[in-house]
Simulated assay, not measured.
Amino acid sequence: MRVHSTLTTIFALVLVTTSAYADSLVYIVNGSQQFGTLNLATGVFQQIGSTQPEAGSFGLATAPNGSLVTFAYSSNLYSINPATGAPTLVGPTGLDNCATSTSPCGSTSASTLGNSAGKIYATDFQNSLYNVNAVTGVATLIGPTGIPGIPYVPGSFNADGTINFYDQAIFGAAGNLYETFDAFVFDLNSFTVVKTIVAPALYQIDPSSGLGTLVGTTDLGIGAVAGVDGTYYAFNDMTGQIEGLNLANGSTNFISNFDPAAGVIQGAVPVPTPEPSSLALFGTGLLGLVAFARNKLARKY
């Protein structure tokens, strides 16, 4: 019975592992200062570690050392250990602080970040493009994108009780740099958009000059985009949906809903898939366990 149990356990492990590799995952950060994974097939969110130490978590990028980096409202850069979710302060970017109601929240406050071709890029409230040093945190201005800036302090209230929001994602695709952006006024009572200030659009950005070129209109509410196996997944915080994003024209198609526990998704990058050599080694190890169990069974009977 013990040998039979061993074989059963091994084959169950094979099935579970194969299933795990079949589902694509992305790392995300959200508006509740949480870090974790989102399963693109099921929409399930799994938090990793405790909440991040500073208010914020805007944008997510993969650093050259394999860690992940994100912005806080203060414009400080943090690295996140993808295995544990543990945050480490990298340092101030040099951009403006927008952490509290009394913060400057100037036009050069940090907006979001992403990566392309091994480099980390960021934008500020006026939609200028920066290169970010993952070791020191320092942001170096590249130039204005020409994309409309954020027309107000994000999260500020209007006289009629409505609130000002924006959505932005910056990401790389096939060596190119892209951005989605929109800005709108939201009614918390009716839970509806009452006015669109900047229409949602997809842009391609020249990383050497910062200049952005309009690709096309897209959906309101895209808070993050991640490319996995040639498909670009947009996370729409207005609808709670995962959408396929067409980089040729900005159009989208519905893929699935995501877990409400994922909250307002503000950054996403793919979870690396195992190297073929690692899978081969894993398979060899399993075959060795199966052979051991069979030999034990033969000796017993």
Rank of each mutant, 00 (worst) to 15 (best):
T218D: 02
A169W: 00
N246W: 01
Q168R: 10
L202H: 00
G244T: 12
Y78C: 01
S208Y: 05
T37G: 04
N97H: 07
P82R: 14
V228A: 08
I120V: 15
Y152H: 14
V69M: 06
V135A: 15
P82E: 12
N39F: 07
A86T: 15
G106D: 07
S74D: 11
L245S: 03
L297P: 00
T123C: 04
V264A: 08
P154T: 09
V153M: 13
S57E: 12
Q46M: 07
A174R: 11
G175A: 04
V269F: 12
M238E: 11
T162C: 04
P104D: 11
L7Y: 05
F11S: 06
L286G: 01
S251A: 15
L245N: 03
G49F: 06
T9D: 14
N39P: 02
F125E: 06
S32Y: 11
A248P: 00
D124E: 11
G155R: 08
G43P: 05
A224D: 06
L214W: 00
S19G: 14
L214H: 00
S67I: 00
V90L: 05
T145Q: 08
S156H: 09
T239F: 05
A22M: 05
L40M: 04
S278D: 14
L202A: 00
D187T: 02
S107H: 03
S101V: 01
